[in-house]
Design a protein around this nucleic acid. Structure first.
Lengths: 126, 126
DNA sequence: CAGAATCCATAGCGATACTG
DNA sequence: CAGTATCGCTATGGATTCTG
């Protein structure tokens, strides 16, 4: 999948380009903060400060960076209300919601196996 | 889910402990290299060097570090064949395969939306 | 309030060399 | 071949300050 495919079919160039792009997107998205932000947004529309308090432990800077990145990739939509003080809201787009479905899967997995994992850690550490 | 829950039920302590553990596991696992390694292993059993060539671009060091971490969490099983030269093989455990299912989802997502994402990037950058 | 920009510490990571 | 250890650089990420 994400690994580059080497073949000599006519559209080899397109394939490798698609793969390297896929890989790049994967690298963008497959990080802790991005996934937690996506998870926290869910079906809701949240303000910057609301996302910040939902995603526990994230710094101001990491939040803006990741929101920018997600916006660039078209996973979140950013709407600015020209009020004072400014009000900026974030929602998942359709692709964003699609990705969120898989993130849900990861979260469920975490809860299903955390006891197992905890036990394994103790075995390993001792 | 991964966000800490604040309530005053009798087992509040267990809940927050479970949540912080879940979050810690999430932080371990939700990183590019770990997910790519899990994806590459699939149903197969691979040697260290084979994983290395499957996961394109990973360094020796990152591979060992992540394999160690995954082993510690009980997601991969490591078997050493006492031959010379040594032969070390890695397989996903049951929890590991369960997680892999969701990683598959992310990879599929990447392929389904990469054109959309590419377009969004161009819009954003220009 | 949202966010851009700066400064600074430390963790991530690659390269290299060394062992069983 | 697999794994550990060391060095050194860069990127990451936190704290802080400044703006509309």
């Amino acid at each position: 999948m994400v690994t580059k495919q080497l073949n000599d079919s006519p559209d080899e160039a397109d394939l490798t380009r698609a793969d390297s792009l896929a890989r790049e997107i994967f690298s963008d998205v497959a990080n802790k903060w991005a996934l937690l932000i996506i998870e926290s947004l869910g079906e809701r529309t949240l303000r910057f400060s609301e996302v910040r308090s939902e995603v526990e432990g994230i710094s101001h800077k990491m939040l803006t960076q990741n929101l920018r990145m997600l916006e660039r990739n078209g996973l979140v939509e950013r709407t600015v209300h020209p009020t004072v003080p400014p009000r900026v809201e974030y929602t998942l787009t359709e692709p964003g919601r699609a990705l969120r479905a898989t993130v849900e899967g990861m979260c469920d997995w975490t809860h299903r196996y955390f006891r197992h994992i905890e036990a394994s850690r103790h075995r390993f550490d001792g």
